[in-house]
Amino acid sequence: MSSKMMFYILKRVLLALMTIWIVITVTFFVMHAVPGNPFAGEKALTAEAQAALEAKYGLDKPLFQQYTTYLTDIVTRFDFGPSMTQRGRMVIDVIMDGMKTSAKLGLIAACSAALLGITLGAVAALRRNSILDKVIMVITTAFVSMPSFIMGSFLLIIFSVKLGWLPANGTTAQGLVLPVITLMLYPMAYITRLTRSSMLDVLGQDYIRTARAKGVSGKKIIFGHALKNSLIPVITYFGPMLAFIVTGSMVVENIFAVPGVGRAFISSITNRDYTMILGTTIFLASLIVIMNLVSDLLYKVVDPRIEFD
Protein backbone atom coordinates (compact mmCIF):
# COMPACT_ATOMS: atom_id res chain seq x y z
CA MET A 1 0.00 0.00 0.00
CA SER A 2 1.47 3.27 -1.06
CA SER A 3 1.72 6.22 1.31
CA LYS A 4 -0.57 8.15 -1.00
CA MET A 5 -3.25 5.56 -0.51
CA MET A 6 -2.75 5.50 3.27
CA PHE A 7 -3.15 9.27 3.26
CA TYR A 8 -6.32 9.00 1.19
CA ILE A 9 -7.84 6.37 3.48
CA LEU A 10 -6.95 8.43 6.55
CA LYS A 11 -8.53 11.50 4.99
CA ARG A 12 -11.74 9.68 4.17
CA VAL A 13 -12.01 8.09 7.62
CA LEU A 14 -11.52 11.49 9.26
CA LEU A 15 -14.15 13.00 6.97
CA ALA A 16 -16.58 10.22 7.89
CA LEU A 17 -15.95 10.70 11.61
CA MET A 18 -16.48 14.40 11.22
CA THR A 19 -19.75 13.80 9.36
CA ILE A 20 -20.99 11.54 12.14
CA TRP A 21 -20.02 14.16 14.71
CA ILE A 22 -21.88 16.83 12.73
CA VAL A 23 -24.94 14.56 12.50
CA ILE A 24 -24.92 14.02 16.28
CA THR A 25 -24.45 17.72 17.02
CA VAL A 26 -27.00 19.01 14.53
CA THR A 27 -29.67 16.45 15.41
CA PHE A 28 -29.13 17.04 19.12
CA PHE A 29 -29.54 20.79 18.95
CA VAL A 30 -32.32 20.63 16.38
CA MET A 31 -34.29 18.22 18.57
CA HIS A 32 -33.79 20.43 21.58
CA ALA A 33 -35.01 23.46 19.67
CA VAL A 34 -38.50 21.97 19.78
CA PRO A 35 -40.54 24.18 22.08
CA GLY A 36 -42.44 22.78 25.01
CA ASN A 37 -41.78 20.10 27.52
CA PRO A 38 -41.40 16.49 26.40
CA PHE A 39 -43.65 15.47 29.28
CA ALA A 40 -46.40 17.87 28.29
CA GLY A 41 -48.48 14.98 26.98
CA GLU A 42 -48.61 13.32 30.38
CA LYS A 43 -51.70 13.80 32.49
CA ALA A 44 -51.32 16.83 34.77
CA LEU A 45 -48.02 16.17 36.48
CA THR A 46 -47.36 17.82 39.81
CA ALA A 47 -44.46 20.25 39.90
CA GLU A 48 -42.49 17.77 41.99
CA ALA A 49 -43.05 14.86 39.64
CA GLN A 50 -42.10 17.06 36.72
CA ALA A 51 -38.87 18.12 38.44
CA ALA A 52 -38.11 14.51 39.33
CA LEU A 53 -38.62 13.41 35.74
CA GLU A 54 -36.45 16.24 34.43
CA ALA A 55 -33.72 15.32 36.88
CA LYS A 56 -33.96 11.68 35.83
CA TYR A 57 -33.49 12.52 32.16
CA GLY A 58 -30.91 15.20 32.91
CA LEU A 59 -33.10 17.94 31.46
CA ASP A 60 -32.52 20.27 34.40
CA LYS A 61 -28.87 20.78 33.42
CA PRO A 62 -27.69 23.47 30.99
CA LEU A 63 -28.08 22.48 27.33
CA PHE A 64 -24.38 22.36 26.57
CA GLN A 65 -23.71 20.05 29.49
CA GLN A 66 -26.53 17.79 28.30
CA TYR A 67 -24.84 17.74 24.89
CA THR A 68 -21.42 16.75 26.21
CA THR A 69 -22.94 14.03 28.38
CA TYR A 70 -24.91 12.71 25.42
CA LEU A 71 -21.84 12.72 23.17
CA THR A 72 -19.56 10.99 25.68
CA ASP A 73 -22.24 8.40 26.43
CA ILE A 74 -22.47 7.54 22.74
CA VAL A 75 -18.71 7.42 22.20
CA THR A 76 -17.75 5.52 25.33
CA ARG A 77 -20.72 3.24 25.99
CA PHE A 78 -22.73 3.36 22.78
CA ASP A 79 -25.60 4.59 24.92
CA PHE A 80 -28.35 6.78 23.45
CA GLY A 81 -30.20 7.30 26.70
CA PRO A 82 -33.65 6.07 27.72
CA SER A 83 -36.76 6.12 25.54
CA MET A 84 -39.27 8.74 26.58
CA THR A 85 -42.51 6.99 25.78
CA GLN A 86 -41.55 3.34 26.22
CA ARG A 87 -40.90 3.42 29.93
CA GLY A 88 -37.94 1.49 31.24
CA ARG A 89 -36.42 0.76 27.86
CA MET A 90 -33.16 2.15 26.51
CA VAL A 91 -33.11 3.55 22.97
CA ILE A 92 -30.23 1.30 21.96
CA ASP A 93 -32.13 -1.82 23.11
CA VAL A 94 -35.11 -0.88 20.96
CA ILE A 95 -32.81 -0.26 17.99
CA MET A 96 -30.92 -3.53 18.47
CA ASP A 97 -34.17 -5.49 18.81
CA GLY A 98 -35.34 -4.02 15.53
CA MET A 99 -31.99 -4.50 13.84
CA LYS A 100 -32.26 -8.29 14.20
CA THR A 101 -35.13 -8.26 11.73
CA SER A 102 -34.15 -5.18 9.71
CA ALA A 103 -30.59 -6.36 9.09
CA LYS A 104 -31.87 -9.70 7.81
CA LEU A 105 -34.41 -7.98 5.58
CA GLY A 106 -31.92 -5.41 4.29
CA LEU A 107 -29.09 -7.86 3.65
CA ILE A 108 -31.26 -10.33 1.75
CA ALA A 109 -32.73 -7.48 -0.30
CA ALA A 110 -29.30 -5.98 -1.04
CA CYS A 111 -27.72 -9.29 -2.05
CA SER A 112 -30.58 -10.35 -4.29
CA ALA A 113 -30.74 -6.86 -5.83
CA ALA A 114 -27.02 -7.00 -6.64
CA LEU A 115 -27.10 -10.56 -8.01
CA LEU A 116 -30.23 -10.14 -10.12
CA GLY A 117 -29.32 -6.64 -11.23
CA ILE A 118 -25.84 -7.56 -12.42
CA THR A 119 -27.13 -10.66 -14.23
CA LEU A 120 -29.98 -8.80 -15.95
CA GLY A 121 -27.74 -5.86 -16.82
CA ALA A 122 -25.05 -8.10 -18.32
CA VAL A 123 -27.63 -10.06 -20.32
CA ALA A 124 -29.18 -6.83 -21.61
CA ALA A 125 -25.80 -5.47 -22.65
CA LEU A 126 -24.69 -8.69 -24.37
CA ARG A 127 -27.99 -8.92 -26.27
CA ARG A 128 -28.08 -5.23 -27.05
CA ASN A 129 -31.15 -4.01 -28.98
CA SER A 130 -32.74 -7.46 -28.88
CA ILE A 131 -36.30 -7.91 -27.63
CA LEU A 132 -34.94 -9.25 -24.33
CA ASP A 133 -32.88 -6.09 -23.83
CA LYS A 134 -35.87 -3.87 -24.56
CA VAL A 135 -38.14 -5.80 -22.20
CA ILE A 136 -35.56 -5.59 -19.41
CA MET A 137 -35.11 -1.86 -19.96
CA VAL A 138 -38.84 -1.12 -20.02
CA ILE A 139 -39.47 -3.11 -16.84
CA THR A 140 -36.55 -1.57 -14.96
CA THR A 141 -37.57 1.95 -16.04
CA ALA A 142 -41.04 1.27 -14.68
CA PHE A 143 -39.62 0.01 -11.38
CA VAL A 144 -37.38 3.04 -11.01
CA SER A 145 -40.35 5.39 -11.38
CA MET A 146 -42.58 3.87 -8.73
CA PRO A 147 -42.40 4.91 -5.06
CA SER A 148 -41.76 1.86 -2.89
CA PHE A 149 -44.89 2.28 -0.76
CA ILE A 150 -47.05 2.02 -3.86
CA MET A 151 -45.10 -0.99 -5.09
CA GLY A 152 -45.47 -2.61 -1.68
CA SER A 153 -49.22 -1.96 -1.55
CA PHE A 154 -49.75 -3.47 -5.00
CA LEU A 155 -47.74 -6.56 -4.08
CA LEU A 156 -49.78 -6.82 -0.91
CA ILE A 157 -53.08 -6.60 -2.79
CA ILE A 158 -52.09 -9.07 -5.47
CA PHE A 159 -50.15 -11.75 -3.62
CA SER A 160 -51.67 -11.83 -0.18
CA VAL A 161 -55.19 -10.43 -0.58
CA LYS A 162 -56.29 -11.62 -4.02
CA LEU A 163 -54.15 -14.74 -4.49
CA GLY A 164 -53.50 -15.57 -0.86
CA TRP A 165 -50.08 -17.08 -1.63
CA LEU A 166 -48.11 -15.23 1.00
CA PRO A 167 -49.01 -13.84 4.42
CA ALA A 168 -49.49 -10.08 4.72
CA ASN A 169 -47.86 -10.08 8.13
CA GLY A 170 -44.08 -9.82 8.15
CA THR A 171 -43.41 -11.45 11.50
CA THR A 172 -42.74 -14.93 10.12
CA ALA A 173 -39.98 -16.06 7.76
CA GLN A 174 -42.50 -16.60 4.97
CA GLY A 175 -43.90 -13.16 5.60
CA LEU A 176 -40.52 -11.61 4.78
CA VAL A 177 -40.75 -12.65 1.11
CA LEU A 178 -42.95 -9.74 0.01
CA PRO A 179 -41.04 -7.09 2.01
CA VAL A 180 -37.77 -8.32 0.52
CA ILE A 181 -39.18 -8.14 -3.01
CA THR A 182 -40.58 -4.65 -2.41
CA LEU A 183 -37.31 -3.42 -1.01
CA MET A 184 -35.23 -5.09 -3.70
CA LEU A 185 -36.99 -3.93 -6.88
CA TYR A 186 -35.74 -0.35 -7.01
CA PRO A 187 -32.03 -1.07 -6.35
CA MET A 188 -32.24 -4.08 -8.65
CA ALA A 189 -33.59 -1.94 -11.48
CA TYR A 190 -30.96 0.71 -10.82
CA ILE A 191 -28.10 -1.82 -10.78
CA THR A 192 -29.42 -3.40 -13.98
CA ARG A 193 -29.27 -0.06 -15.79
CA LEU A 194 -25.88 0.76 -14.31
CA THR A 195 -24.38 -2.61 -15.26
CA ARG A 196 -25.84 -2.44 -18.75
CA SER A 197 -24.40 0.97 -19.57
CA SER A 198 -20.99 0.28 -18.06
CA MET A 199 -20.84 -3.13 -19.74
CA LEU A 200 -21.64 -1.54 -23.11
CA ASP A 201 -18.89 0.96 -22.43
CA VAL A 202 -16.39 -1.79 -21.62
CA LEU A 203 -17.39 -3.94 -24.61
CA GLY A 204 -16.47 -1.04 -26.88
CA GLN A 205 -12.93 -0.81 -25.48
CA ASP A 206 -9.84 -1.70 -27.47
CA TYR A 207 -8.67 -4.48 -25.17
CA ILE A 208 -11.87 -6.41 -25.80
CA ARG A 209 -11.23 -6.18 -29.54
CA THR A 210 -7.63 -7.26 -28.96
CA ALA A 211 -8.80 -10.25 -26.92
CA ARG A 212 -11.24 -11.18 -29.69
CA ALA A 213 -8.52 -10.81 -32.29
CA LYS A 214 -6.25 -13.10 -30.27
CA GLY A 215 -8.99 -15.72 -30.43
CA VAL A 216 -10.00 -15.72 -26.78
CA SER A 217 -13.30 -17.54 -26.33
CA GLY A 218 -16.47 -15.54 -25.84
CA LYS A 219 -17.03 -16.89 -22.34
CA LYS A 220 -13.55 -15.89 -21.26
CA ILE A 221 -13.97 -12.40 -22.67
CA ILE A 222 -17.24 -11.88 -20.84
CA PHE A 223 -16.22 -13.28 -17.47
CA GLY A 224 -12.50 -12.53 -17.55
CA HIS A 225 -12.48 -9.07 -19.07
CA ALA A 226 -15.84 -7.41 -19.56
CA LEU A 227 -17.85 -8.29 -16.47
CA LYS A 228 -15.03 -7.64 -14.02
CA ASN A 229 -14.34 -4.19 -15.34
CA SER A 230 -17.95 -3.19 -15.76
CA LEU A 231 -18.67 -3.95 -12.10
CA ILE A 232 -16.48 -1.08 -10.91
CA PRO A 233 -19.16 1.63 -11.20
CA VAL A 234 -21.65 -0.75 -9.57
CA ILE A 235 -19.52 -0.84 -6.42
CA THR A 236 -20.00 2.90 -5.95
CA TYR A 237 -23.73 2.36 -5.86
CA PHE A 238 -23.52 0.10 -2.79
CA GLY A 239 -23.39 3.07 -0.40
CA PRO A 240 -26.47 4.84 -1.86
CA MET A 241 -28.19 1.45 -2.08
CA LEU A 242 -27.85 0.97 1.65
CA ALA A 243 -29.20 4.47 2.21
CA PHE A 244 -32.16 3.61 0.03
CA ILE A 245 -32.75 0.33 1.84
CA VAL A 246 -32.64 2.05 5.23
CA THR A 247 -35.26 4.62 4.26
CA GLY A 248 -37.20 2.13 2.16
CA SER A 249 -37.41 -0.26 5.08
CA MET A 250 -39.34 2.37 7.05
CA VAL A 251 -42.05 2.22 4.42
CA VAL A 252 -41.93 -1.52 3.83
CA GLU A 253 -41.88 -2.45 7.51
CA ASN A 254 -44.94 -0.27 8.02
CA ILE A 255 -46.93 -1.79 5.17
CA PHE A 256 -46.14 -5.39 6.06
CA ALA A 257 -45.99 -4.92 9.84
CA VAL A 258 -42.39 -6.12 10.13
CA PRO A 259 -41.03 -5.52 13.64
CA GLY A 260 -37.86 -3.66 12.57
CA VAL A 261 -35.98 -0.44 13.19
CA GLY A 262 -37.87 1.41 10.49
CA ARG A 263 -41.21 0.76 12.12
CA ALA A 264 -39.83 1.70 15.52
CA PHE A 265 -38.56 4.95 14.01
CA ILE A 266 -41.89 5.83 12.40
CA SER A 267 -43.85 5.06 15.55
CA SER A 268 -41.39 7.20 17.52
CA ILE A 269 -42.20 10.06 15.13
CA THR A 270 -45.95 9.59 15.62
CA ASN A 271 -45.52 9.34 19.40
CA ARG A 272 -43.10 12.31 19.46
CA ASP A 273 -40.58 10.17 21.37
CA TYR A 274 -37.72 12.66 21.04
CA THR A 275 -34.86 10.61 22.48
CA MET A 276 -35.88 7.71 20.27
CA ILE A 277 -36.01 9.90 17.13
CA LEU A 278 -32.63 11.38 18.03
CA GLY A 279 -30.99 8.02 18.74
CA THR A 280 -32.38 6.25 15.68
CA THR A 281 -31.46 9.11 13.36
CA ILE A 282 -27.89 9.12 14.64
CA PHE A 283 -27.64 5.33 14.48
CA LEU A 284 -28.99 5.01 10.94
CA ALA A 285 -27.06 8.04 9.68
CA SER A 286 -23.80 6.64 11.05
CA LEU A 287 -24.57 3.31 9.42
CA ILE A 288 -25.06 5.00 6.05
CA VAL A 289 -21.94 7.16 6.41
CA ILE A 290 -19.83 4.10 7.26
CA MET A 291 -21.25 2.10 4.35
CA ASN A 292 -20.57 5.00 1.99
CA LEU A 293 -17.00 5.12 3.26
CA VAL A 294 -16.51 1.38 2.76
CA SER A 295 -17.94 1.42 -0.74
CA ASP A 296 -15.82 4.44 -1.72
CA LEU A 297 -12.63 2.87 -0.39
CA LEU A 298 -13.46 -0.44 -2.05
CA TYR A 299 -13.92 1.42 -5.31
CA LYS A 300 -10.44 2.90 -5.12
CA VAL A 301 -8.86 -0.40 -4.12
CA VAL A 302 -10.55 -2.36 -6.90
CA ASP A 303 -9.65 0.05 -9.67
CA PRO A 304 -5.96 0.99 -9.65
CA ARG A 305 -6.51 3.49 -12.47
CA ILE A 306 -8.36 5.90 -10.22
CA GLU A 307 -6.17 8.62 -8.81
CA PHE A 308 -6.17 9.65 -5.18
CA ASP A 309 -6.85 13.30 -4.86
Binding site: L15, A16, M18, T19, I22, V23, T27, V30, M31, A33, V34, P35, G36, A243, V246, T247, I269, R272, I277, T281, L284, A285, I288, V289, N292
Partner: peptide
Protein backbone atom coordinates in the same frame (compact mmCIF):
# COMPACT_ATOMS: atom_id res chain seq x y z
CA UNK B 1 -19.94 19.74 -0.25
CA UNK B 2 -18.22 16.48 0.73
CA UNK B 3 -19.70 16.59 4.21
CA UNK B 4 -23.20 17.49 3.06
CA UNK B 5 -22.97 14.84 0.38
CA UNK B 6 -22.38 12.14 2.96
CA UNK B 7 -25.32 13.19 5.14
CA UNK B 8 -28.27 10.83 4.70
CA UNK B 9 -30.80 13.22 3.15
CA UNK B 10 -34.04 11.41 3.90
CA UNK B 11 -33.24 11.14 7.59
CA UNK B 12 -32.42 14.83 7.76
CA UNK B 13 -35.67 15.68 5.96
CA UNK B 14 -37.69 13.58 8.42
CA UNK B 15 -35.92 15.13 11.38
CA UNK B 16 -36.38 18.68 10.12
CA UNK B 17 -40.03 18.04 9.21
CA UNK B 18 -40.71 16.83 12.72
CA UNK B 19 -38.94 19.78 14.31
CA UNK B 20 -39.90 22.57 11.92
CA UNK B 21 -43.54 21.46 12.19
CA UNK B 22 -43.33 22.50 15.83
CA UNK B 23 -41.04 25.49 15.45
Amino acid sequence: VDIIYSLPDTLVIILLSVVLGEV
